[in-house]
Design a protein around this nucleic acid. Structure first.
Lengths: 206, 206, 206, 206
DNA sequence: TAATAATCGAGACGGTACGTCTTGTCTTCGT
DNA sequence: ACGAAGACAAGACGTACCGTCTCGATTATTA
């Protein structure tokens, strides 16, 4: 009887709206399959089947498995790399380094990131995704900004971030064993010294 | 009586010996195709056809295209990363860094190395090849050994190599632009200072 | 209101339906290739390419080239072996024999049948196809049923069919020259006599 | 002077003579493999390995597996199809038919013959081998010659052989079950009657 | 006693079909 | 219009066999 406003949705577009159920199913499938089978064994076909979703639905919203993986893991990656503020500058560096090392070595989002960096070496489109995300600089920046006031000559943030995080990423990508805590502390010390730190809250400093 | 040990054959195996012509054709094909088409577009089928070689012949001697690429580029990579001795320690570090940066950015062997590091993230077998080669430590070691006498506290070679080369490799793998010469010099300075170097203040120290 | 038999769809299955265009292209390709190149030179790969069809599409609907060939030629074979009714029993036998001889020697469907009998000796699956089709008995039966009333002791249809058609098939499979018309008439006479026929000399005998 | 040229051998050729050991090993291998794995699964490679013989050695003496199989089985086939003389003409025909049926159904040489007839439909070279051997006429001829005096109108030997043996071969090649003894006796009777036999030396005849 | 020559087993060679897999597109139905 | 199902053309995968070739070793005849 009601005049029946047939306008159930705030979405102005006609037709059936995108199914959020399908979107989440795909993202979860990708997350799971990466851990269970690895990146190489993941296929668009497999993802669609695992998600219980039509193949075309996947292709409609994403071009490659890398793109899906990016969307599935980027938020996690950023939040997991948010290094909490520390009591002193030396700790800022070393606790960030440990966070990063563990993220790359064991976190699902870290595994995803390594896979994406790998794929970026073969596929220019993935390369752009990785460059845009720039996870290293992005995650190191807050730490460096907190440490900067205590140093006399830290270089530009981009270089400093590479100096800080680059060795850890390289290690994760090319060697079997990640750095120990001691190694990371030594690395932090080297950089702190190199940046002419006066980390003056510590009386003996320099 | 018999004056000679009856050691007649250096080739003990029966059957037709391996064709060196085929081996070289495959390695050259891989080298060329990587530059022309990129790693992803390279296929075992394509390599065999390009080399004018049977498919089975490729599979007989190599398991994956990564393995071929490794054999094709490893020697080049090692020789291209042999950093010539410099007049002073500061130059040792920075000229190695520039060599490494340019190798990764433009050398065919460097492109191959990046592709292999990429593939190592997807394939454990390639991962082992990369770990065994350990190009960073191997190439940085001679430089570090020459610099070490001038520092008071350089850490273990493995860590020092990662500190030195890691940022350059990470940059090459994840960002669009390689480091400038200035940035590399700044990085060298940072490490030298961090390692408590007494560079040059004692020029006679050499 | 209407009871409305809710039988809207003959195709209950979801998904894209089978392409009849692809099916016919494959069957035609097989027909042509058998004549042009022979059975041994036909390959699943070649059939797919000749038909302009994906390889998987062929394998999806047929297991072997023999299966395709069977489907492509069975209908033709049956219709070509339908021997028209004759004015007298002696003619029934001899005209069927000539039909069969010429079918096996020159008809494309006859060539296909010979190839399939050949393959049946190597592949049990093809063997079953051939056994199920039982072309000899099937094609001879109508002839024998028309002749039977004029004989006193024709054996069971299966044996009679083998007696009638077996020599012609054997000849086609193992010797260079097919039987002449005279030979076939002599064969028909032998069987007619052997079956104690009182053919036509006594038309009222019916 | 020369006390008899030392020419002990009909083999005038220089060089190492053909190894009879290798020849027999190949023939045995083919015999065994046909029974164990079937014709289709036999390969030149497999035969060589099974015989413990080089691949080239096989190709040196035979072109195809069919040729080897022919050499391996022809002698057996001929001797197994030598039908012993019987006490009366009716028995001549029926005991030959039973011999032939059992040969085709169960004898290794019979299996080989069926495989060769099969291959002959695909390969003209094998076709010629089969035509030259003409096993049916060859084996039926002695029987027919012994029976002929007792018939008034047996056709030419080739046709008579096809009439006699053709149904049995066709049955063996295209149907699952071979003929029973009764069926073969009925077939013999039909032909005998058809050939106007007077088999009359036997009072009860006909 | 050597030289010559054809054989032997072994196994790599360039090719090519096998049957399976994944790709990205398309075509159908039901919601 | 979207979503699921699944067929479509294309083409790489790694394996098997093809028939040829190249080895070193063996076994004959001829000089």
């Amino acid at each position: 009887m009601s005049p029946a406003a047939p306008e159930p949705a705030p979405s102005a577009k006609p037709g059936r709206p995108r199914s959020d159920r399908a979107r989440r199913a795909v993202l979860h499938a990708v997350d799971d399959m990466l851990i269970e089978d690895g990146y190489a064994a993941m296929t668009m076909k497999g993802i669609a089947e695992r998600a219980g979703v039509g193949r075309q639905t996947v292709y409609r919203w994403w071009s490659t498995k890398a793109e899906i993986l990016m969307e599935a893991s980027e938020a996690d990656a950023r939040s997991e790399l948010r290094s909490p503020e520390q009591s002193d500058p030396a700790r800022e560096l070393s606790s960030y380094l440990m966070l990063l090392r563990t993220f790359l070595a064991t976190s699902p989002a870290g595994v995803a990131y390594r896979a994406l960096v790998g794929e970026a070496q073969h596929d220019p489109a993935v390369r752009q995704l990785i460059e845009r995300a720039d996870l290293l600089t992005t995650s190191a920046r807050p730490v460096l900004l907190r440490v900067q006031p205590f140093t006399k000559a830290m270089p530009a943030i981009e270089l400093a971030a590479a100096q800080l995080a680059g060795p850890v990423l390289s290690q994760a990508l090319t060697t079997p064993e990640p750095f120990t805590d001691d190694a990371l502390r030594a690395h932090a010390d080297t950089l702190a010294s190199g940046w002419h730190a006066r980390f003056g809250s510590h009386p003996e400093a320099m």
